[in-house]
Design a protein around this nucleic acid. Structure first.
Lengths: 228, 228
DNA sequence: GAAATACTCAAACCCTTGTTTGACTATTCT
DNA sequence: AGAATAGTCAAACAAGGGTTTGAGTATTTC
């Protein structure tokens, strides 16, 4: 039985789509994508941020580049990687959301990240947007400076989780009677969990948001992006 | 260096998400998903519809079930499989769309399916919905009877591609001065391409739509679903 | 020019996948 | 009861993936 030429084309197409599937079939690569959703990173930073050796990170990047999810360019002696487009970050969010809905085990673990009712603000992006408009909100971005610089929620102040001290907290200009929210890299960001704990230990009644910039963008809200 | 408990949970979560990635990392499994998007199928039908042996199809199904993308139940001696939800079909469409946008090779091949300007109707779902409302449209569903029965576009008539004859075409009640559109299983459906060719060879000035039921649903339009 | 940095590559390793084959089970039909 | 149907499972094999190691390259710094 001879294969129809259209059938061959169709199979080729599915093979191509499977490249993207393959790219998102490894926890390490998913971690890299979720990191890159917050801005470009060098291979080194990417390896460090996902607990991999440089060589393995480089190998995973090869797969991500083969699927055209990630592009990179060499500047000086460093290779800067970034997602190929906003649609990649949105696809990652779609995959994550589907997993949260479909996989029982994922749903269980995910709940543990949003379990601490006192420390978590159950706001959605649009609800926060409404609170921001009425003005009585202090919003903290706990991510590293470069990520904040790349894009952050409107009105957010940058307070990198690693640099939280009593001094910083004391000099925070807080709106009278306003709520204090913090976000980091998303609902499963360990740095954000710890940062929030530390802030609360220092007496700041901050609550962690369960979303970050990528989710905010996916919800159709505006961000403050780096010029140029 | 001891791993933080939250970090461990996070990795577990990413492993779970990677299950879904793995499920969509094989062309064969993608073909199965795209078939299942048109309604439940037995393992046999699924194997036949994707050119696989029964055993390989069964093995692939195991992976799809492990990712909770597909559920199945035994009725009599047959196992009926279906997508775990509408969100699975939408995720498949999101993956396909991302691939069409990102992968140059996929984009090239995809274009070949929408190249024949005379035979293809460049309508979007919302544009077709508008045409349907003004009424002068004949709409043909070329898929098998069961898929039509499961869900079809409002106003569509079922004319399975395999049963197209001059007789059938002659007795088609066509709206005066109306356009004739046909859809099958989507933009890359070979059966739909051939069915359209056959219809045109029989003198029917039909044009193929580049979407089907899943895309129509994803666009937020209503379908006629099987009762029960 | 030499050393250091930030990668990439190739080889080797092990482990996982995909496919085929044949056996096995459950269900239905006769 | 016996045969046929629909599917799963286990074993075996080839193929492909992920990680480590060590070497190699381009660029920058000293």
């Amino acid at each position: 039985m001879k294969a129809h030429p259209d059938t061959a084309k169709r199979q080729l197409l599915f093979q191509q789509f499977a490249l993207i599937g393959h790219a998102v079939s490894s926890p390490a690569r998913l971690a890299m994508i979720s990191l890159l959703a917050h801005g470009e990173k060098t291979v080194d930073q990417l390896a460090g941020g996902t607990n991999q050796t440089l060589a393995t990170a480089s190998a995973h990047l090869k797969v991500l580049r083969a699927a055209c999810l990630v592009t990179s360019d060499k500047r000086g002696r460093q290779v800067f990687c970034r997602l190929a487009g906003d649609n990649v970050a949105q696809f990652w969010l779609a995959l994550r959301t589907l997993g949260e809905e479909l996989l029982p085990e994922a749903r269980d673990v995910a709940r543990q990240f949003t379990d601490d009712r006192r420390a978590l603000a159950p706001l959605s992006p649009s609800e926060l947007a409404a609170e921001l408009r009425n003005g009585r909100v202090t919003l903290l971005d706990l991510r590293p400076r470069e990520e904040y610089a790349t894009a952050h929620l409107p009105g957010a102040r940058n307070l990198p989780a690693g640099e939280i001290t009593a001094g910083h907290v004391a000099e925070l200009p807080r709106k009278p009677c306003g709520r204090v929210y913090a976000y980091c890299r998303g609902p499963y960001c360990v740095m954000g969990l710890e940062g929030t704990r530390k802030l609360r230990a220092l007496g700041l009644p901050v609550r962690r948001l369960k979303f970050s910039v990528p989710e905010w963008v996916a919800a159709g809200e505006q961000v403050v992006r780096k010029a140029g």
